[in-house]
C-alpha cells in the first residue's frame, strides 16, 4: 500500500454543508451538482456506507452516505437531505459519485490565511480526509478531501468483496 502525499486545502471557493451539527467544506471544483434526496436502489454485497445507486439523467452512479461512512448514527432522510454529486479520481480515471449529507449551507470563499492544518491527534488516527480547517466568522469548517473520503483502498475492497463472493 502506498502512502499518499497529503493534500493541503487550497484557498478558494467551498461548498459548505451540515452533517450531524458539524459544518464541512467541499472544494467547489469537485462538485458537479446538488440534487434533492431521491430513491436510492440498494446493491447487495456492498459495504453499508454505499447506500446504493441512483439514476442521474440516464447515468447510474453510486451513492455513499457520509453519516455511515463517518460512523455517525443514521437519520431518517428529510426534505433537507441532499445528494452532492462529486467527481473524484480513481486510478487516474474520473468517476462520478453521490454523497448523502444532512443539508447544504452555502458557498463561501476561504482565504489561505484562514486555512489551518488539521490538529494532530497522534499517529494512530488517520484523518487524511480532512485537508484543513477553515475559519469562517466565528466558526470552523472541516475541509474535506473527497478523494480521500472515498479512499481507493475501501473502494477497491468493494470490488474485492464482489469478486470473492
Amino acid at each position: 500500500m502506498t502512502v499518499k502525499q497529503e493534500e493541503k486545502a487550497k484557498e478558494g471557493k467551498y461548498l459548505t454543508f451540515v452533517l450531524d451539527k458539524e459544518e464541512y467544506g467541499l472544494e467547489i471544483l469537485k462538485v458537479r451538482e446538488i440534487i434533492g434526496i431521491m430513491k436510492i436502489t440498494p446493491v447487495p454485497q456492498t459495504p453499508d456506507f454505499l447506500k446504493g445507486v441512483i439514476n442521474l439523467r440516464g447515468k447510474v452512479i453510486p451513492v455513499v452516505d457520509l453519516r455511515v461512512k463517518f460512523g455517525i448514527p443514521e437519520l431518517e432522510y428529510t426534505k433537507e437531505t441532499c445528494i452532492i454529486v462529486v467527481e473524484i479520481e480513481k486510478d487516474g480515471k474520473p468517476m462520478t459519485m453521490g454523497i448523502v449529507i444532512d443539508s447544504v449551507s452555502e458557498v463561501i470563499y476561504i482565504e489561505e490565511k484562514n486555512i489551518d492544518e488539521r490538529p494532530d491527534f497522534g499517529t494512530n488516527i488517520k484523518a487524511n480526509f480532512i485537508s484543513g480547517i477553515g475559519k469562517v466568522g466565528g466558526g470552523v469548517k472541516m475541509l474535506l478531501n473527497i478523494n480521500e473520503v472515498l479512499t481507493d483502498e475501501e473502494l477497491s475492497t468493494m470490488e474485492e468483496i464482489g469478486k470473492q463472493n
Binding site: 445507486v53 447515468k59 447510474v60 470490488e159 464482489g162
Partner: peptide, 19 residues
C-alpha cells in the same frame, strides 16, 4: 442496460443497472 461503474463491476449475480 447501464453499468454500475468500476467500483461495482465484480458483483456476483448482478450484471448492471437499469432505469
Amino acid at each position: 442496460i447501464k453499468t454500475l461503474g468500476d467500483t461495482m463491476k465484480n458483483l456476483e449475480g448482478i450484471s448492471g443497472g437499469a432505469i
